[in-house]
Design a binder for these strands. Structure first.
Lengths: 217, 217
DNA sequence: TGCTGAACTTGACAACTTCTCAAGAATGAA
DNA sequence: TTCATTCTTGAGAAGTTGTCAAGTTCAGCA
């Protein structure tokens, strides 16, 4: 019959501040996560050792393992946080317009802006995550999150009669995410101008999906 | 002034048979490669140790390193071989038709047939290869090979006036490869019927690209 | 046929990683 | 201040990758 955990608050409220200890622990974890991000981006997954992360956070190796079960988990935490940040940006940008093609364009623009502001992060987190996370994270890879978000949009468009409805919106959404990923990668390598790229991509997708009633000219 | 390598043949002809030693060496390498393939497919990259591969090929660890500089190189050899096999199948299937949409359909069918006949190979070789090969293999990932092949087709179609020509065929080709990859992955997870999937995918791409003069009804 | 040295093979081991855990330091309640 | 609990530490256990000196095989030669 142990009864530690005697706090002022009745329920186990672990969010926001908490006791000083909890705050410090959260801070320690945040320091580790920040160090992990820097190193994973700079050196890549394999060249970054847990002890490097701990040292960069000015902590001992053992502390790393208090906060993360293993190196993979730390990588996943980094990757998920980046995905979350990016999704927020993309969702906010896409919400600004009701027109499908324009929404897609704005979303892609937001994605590229994030990539610019956080150089190396997307490649580090999502080239590698395919292998590192491997089997474990059935839930929500960035690609799946983007596809789910897009899939919702497609479903709405189909119901409204704005988009062709003769295909599975989820399959199409995943396909489009794949299309965008590869097209941007290719366009980036060849140093195509960003606006041209975005234009070609959105046009391609629109032609496949949008039921145009009439076009001016 | 050393002059080993005195063979009957004048030039250094290293293909086909060669001397008995050469044949045995090639055979050893082939045994290692076969063992590597089995293990990489069964267990994945990380869970396969070079010594496991050597043992499965009934050879010692050191021999592994005579034929491959390191574990990555062995993986790359496996991955490249699989890509080559697949490309042959896809090219042969696509050559059977001149119509763009049908050619795409046949190519995808060939791709899926290969995946069926070699279960686990494609995921093992190309989920992982993104991370393992990582920076090194600028040349020809499977995705790039498929995209190059498709890009040629697109260019032809554009010149013939059969396809819309207002976008960079290479960017579009890479995009399509990404589309197919993700759409198939998603469709596979949801156990969609194969023919439906292929139909939806080819229809999507055709609508975006094909300049239809007139359709029967 | 037996000899020779180049090429191939071997496996113990060195170098390096990841992760653990017993011991010590810090914190907050009484 | 004292004590129980939690957090931190870093040496080292466990396990992997890649090396190399020594042993084995074989084509060419007399």
């Amino acid at each position: 019959m142990n009864n530690y955990h005697r706090m002022a608050q009745p329920a186990a409220q672990s969010t926001s501040t908490g006791t000083r200890r909890e705050r410090r622990k959260a801070e320690t974890r945040a320091r580790l996560l920040a160090a992990a991000r820097t190193l994973f981006v700079e050196r890549g997954y394999h060249a970054t050792r847990p002890q490097d992360i701990a040292e960069a956070a000015d902590l001992a190796t053992g502390t790393f393992y208090v906060h993360f079960a293993d190196k993979r988990e730390a990588f996943q935490a980094f990757s998920e946080k980046a995905a979350q940040e990016l999704m927020e940006r993309v969702r906010a940008a896409g919400a600004e317009s009701a027109d499908f093609e324009q929404r897609l364009y704005l979303s892609l623009e937001a994605l590229m802006a994030y990539a610019d502001e956080n150089p190396g992060t997307l490649p580090a987190a999502f080239t590698d995550s395919a292998v590192i996370a491997a089997e474990l994270p059935q839930g929500a890879s960035l690609q799946d999150q983007l596809a789910d978000s897009l899939g919702q949009g497609l479903r709405q468009g189909m119901e409204r009669g704005a988009l062709r409805a003769d295909a599975d919106p989820d399959v199409i959404a995943h396909g489009i995410v794949g299309f965008v990923t590869q097209a941007l990668r290719c366009g980036g390598k060849r140093k195509r101008a960003r606006s041209d790229l975005l234009g070609e991509i959105t046009r391609f997708v629109s032609r496949a999906l949008v039921l145009e009633e009439e076009e001016p000219s």
